[in-house]
C-alpha cells in the first residue's frame, strides 16, 4: 500500500498544493448529472440490445423500426416499397439489425458530446468539474483504444446515408396499412419528429461543422461554406439536446413499431 501511495501522483491532495484533505468541496448536487447519464444511457443500451437481437416485431405496415433499416438480408420481413433489399443474400442468419447498427452506434460512441457524457458518467474522468477523479493515471485520448475516437468523421460520413434511408422510411409512413398514399397516423408524426431530430443531431455534429467550413482559414473567400458553417454552428450549440432527443426518439419510434406489431394497439389514423 505504502509503495502504491508514494508512486501515485496525488493530484489535489499532493505535495505543494494547498493542504486540504477533502478531494472536493462542492456543496451542490454535482453527482446528479452523471447519475442521470448512467441511468439513461444504460436503459437505452439494454433496450436497444434486446430489440436488436430479438429479430421480431420490427415491421408494422407502413412503419419499419429505425433499428432495422435498412434491412439487407434474405431473412428480413416483407416490407412493400420498404428499405429491404436482400443484397446480402441468405447467408446472414442473425438479426438483420446487427448489420448496420454498428454505424450509428459508432457515430454516437465517437461523438464529441457522448464522449464527454460517458467519460464523466461511466469513467468518472472527471465525474464533475473540480471533483477529483479516482484514477492513478490519465492519458486522455493519446492511446489505444481511446485514440480511435479521432475517426469520428468517418462515422459521420456513414451516418449520412443511414439518415437518408430513415428519411425514406418516414416518407413511406405517409401511407396507410394498405399501402395507399396520402394518409397519416400517429406513427407518421412520431417518425417525423424522429427524423427531424436525427438530422438535427447528424448535422450539428462537430465533424460536420468542421467539414462544412470550420477547416477554412478565410471564410470571406468562401461565402457559401461560411453560411453553411454559421448554420451548423448554430445547430451545434444544441448538440447535446439533439443527441438526447434523437436517442429517445429512435427508441420511441422502435417501441411504437413494436407495440403495433405485437398488436397492443392500432395506429390511430389521422386521415
Amino acid at each position: 500500500m505504502a509503495t502504491v501511495q508514494s508512486r501515485s501522483p496525488a493530484g489535489v491532495t499532493g505535495p505543494g498544493r494547498a493542504a486540504i484533505a477533502a478531494r472536493q468541496l462542492r456543496t451542490d448536487r454535482w453527482w446528479l448529472a452523471p447519475a442521470v447519464t448512467v441511468v439513461a444511457l444504460a436503459a437505452f443500451v439494454v433496450y436497444a440490445t434486446w430489440r436488436a437481437f430479438t429479430n421480431t416485431d420490427y415491421y408494422a405496415a407502413p412503419y419499419v423500426s429505425p433499428f432495422y433499416s435498412p434491412c439487407l438480408s434474405e431473412n428480413c420481413v416483407e416490407m412493400q416499397g420498404g428499405p429491404n433489399w436482400a443484397v446480402l443474400g441468405d447467408w446472414w442468419v442473425l438479426s438483420p439489425a446487427l448489420i448496420f447498427l454498428a454505424l450509428p452506434l459508432g457515430f454516437r460512441l465517437t461523438c464529441y458530446y457522448y464522449r464527454k457524457a460517458y467519460y464523466r458518467a461511466f469513467w468518472a474522468s472527471p465525474p464533475a468539474c473540480a471533483v477529483a477523479e479516482p484514477h492513478q493515471r490519465n492519458t486522455g485520448e493519446t492511446r489505444f483504444p481511446l485514440i480511435v475516437n479521432n475517426v469520428h468523421r468517418y462515422f459521420f460520413y456513414a451516418a449520412l446515408p443511414i439518415a437518408v434511408i430513415l428519411t425514406y422510411d418516414t416518407v413511406l409512413g405517409f401511407r396507410n396499412a394498405e399501402y395507399e398514399w396520402g394518409h397519416m397516423g400517429l406513427g407518421t408524426l412520431i417518425f417525423l419528429v424522429n427524423i427531424v431530430l436525427v438530422w438535427g443531431y447528424t448535422l450539428s455534429c462537430h465533424s460536420c461543422r468542421h467539414i462544412m467550413g470550420g477547416r477554412l482559414r478565410h471564410f470571406s473567400a468562401h461565402p457559401v461554406r461560411y453560411r453553411l458553417w454559421t448554420w451548423t454552428s448554430r445547430l451545434n450549440g444544441r448538440h447535446m439536446e439533439l443527441a438526447w432527443g434523437s436517442l429517445f426518439s429512435l427508441a420511441l419510434a422502435d417501441l411504437y413499431v413494436y407495440l403495433l406489431a405485437t398488436g397492443v394497439f392500432d395506429d390511430p389514423v389521422l386521415f
Binding site: 464529441y112 464522449r115 464527454k116 467519460y119 474522468s125 472527471p126 492519458t139 486522455g140 485520448e141 493519446t142
Partner: peptide, 15 residues
C-alpha cells in the same frame, strides 16, 4: 502540447 490528453469533458468551458 498534448491536445490528445483532452477528453473534451468541457469543464474549461463551464468555468
Amino acid at each position: 502540447h498534448g491536445l490528445g490528453y483532452c477528453n473534451i469533458t468541457k469543464c474549461c468551458t463551464e468555468v
